[in-house]
């Protein structure tokens, strides 16, 4: 009881003494959390979108002839040697004709004149729904085109591919801003705590002489780092949430962004970001104390 009372009063004293730099640190921490979380949010939304696009993305390999069961198995093996795939489906001439007819619906009588085997047989390949296999869709199609007996390979639009390059770039940006987050939090917190320690050198010296335990001296600084992490990251996440709501409001209604649903982090991710920030800030203050508090 008395312990926490003393500790909290000490923290209050520190904050009052160096409130200018404390505020700067708080803002820096919240800004770097904001930057990191912003890119990360875009990234996760892109992944979501990618997942949905992946549903539509299949490669269609048109074949010269209908493959027999043995050839089918050989083709499946060949496809699997390139990469694991979600599904391989064989479409015979008859099936292709039937499908086409279904698509024409009421107008299917135009097909009456046509031979039932005028459409080529094909293989539909559904790649795995992950970034890696989607990224190399181009390579994959080139590979499939080289299989014996193929006429042509068709796959989703070009922009799908560009989209995945973009996502990849974004993942690098997320990594970079994450590094930035780690650096700023640790260094800024360490810096302000160092400032406090140097400003209170005489007092810390005296505290040791009158018998203050290490815990008595350290806890306020650790708590200070913890508070910086908690407040800074919560502030950053809150700012991002407001930004997110604003974007949603602005761009809702018919338009490009309606193609996919925007979504915010689940609470667990927000909490993890806050938790990691707290950890980083506390580490920053701890490392400074190890350096500047000779106790």
């Amino acid at each position: 009881m008395s312990f926490w009372f003393t500790v909290i009063r000490q923290v209050g004293r520190n904050l009052r003494m160096t409130w200018g730099s404390q505020l700067m640190t708080l803002l820096t921490v919240s800004l770097s959390v904001l930057i990191f979380a912003f890119f990360y949010l875009i990234y996760t939304n892109m992944l979501n979108l990618g997942h949905k696009l992946g549903d539509d993305l299949s490669l269609i390999v048109y074949l010269e002839e209908e493959p027999g069961p043995e050839l089918q198995q050989q083709l499946i093996n060949k496809i699997n040697t390139f990469d694991e795939v979600e599904e391989v489906r064989f479409v015979s001439r008859a099936e292709a004709f039937q499908r086409f007819a279904d698509q024409l619906g009421k107008n299917q009588d135009v097909l009456n004149e046509m031979p039932r085997d005028f459409l080529p047989p094909s293989i539909e390949v559904l790649p795995m729904k992950n970034l890696r296999s989607l990224n190399q869709v181009k390579l994959f199609s080139a590979y499939l085109a080289r299989l014996p007996g193929t006429i042509k390979v068709q796959y989703g639009q070009d922009w799908v591919e560009r989209f995945y390059y973009f996502t990849k770039l974004l993942s690098i940006v997320v990594l970079l801003s994450g590094t930035l987050l780690i650096m700023t939090t640790i260094f800024m917190v360490a810096y302000t705590i160092r400032l406090t320690i140097l400003g209170r050198q005489a007092e810390l010296e005296l505290l040791k002489l009158v018998g203050a335990t290490n815990n008595y001296i350290r806890t306020p600084f650790l708590l200070e780092g913890l508070l910086q992490g908690l407040l800074g990251s919560s502030l950053g996440i809150a700012q991002l949430y407001i930004l997110y709501q604003w974007i949603k409001l602005r761009f809702s209604g018919p338009g490009f962004l309606n193609v996919f649903e925007l979504s915010f982090f689940p609470p667990s991710v927000s909490l993890t970001i806050i938790g990691v920030s707290i950890l980083l800030c506390t580490m920053g203050s701890y490392s400074t104390m190890q350096k500047f508090l000779r106790i």
């Binding site: 002489l209 009158v210 018998g211």
Partner: peptide
């Protein structure tokens, strides 16, 4: 050491006041 120092009161010649 801290506990021992809590049991020793010292009035320093140079005061060491804050």
């Amino acid at each position: 050491l801290a506990r021992l120092r809590q049991k020793i009161g010292v009035a320093y010649q140079d005061f060491k006041l804050l």
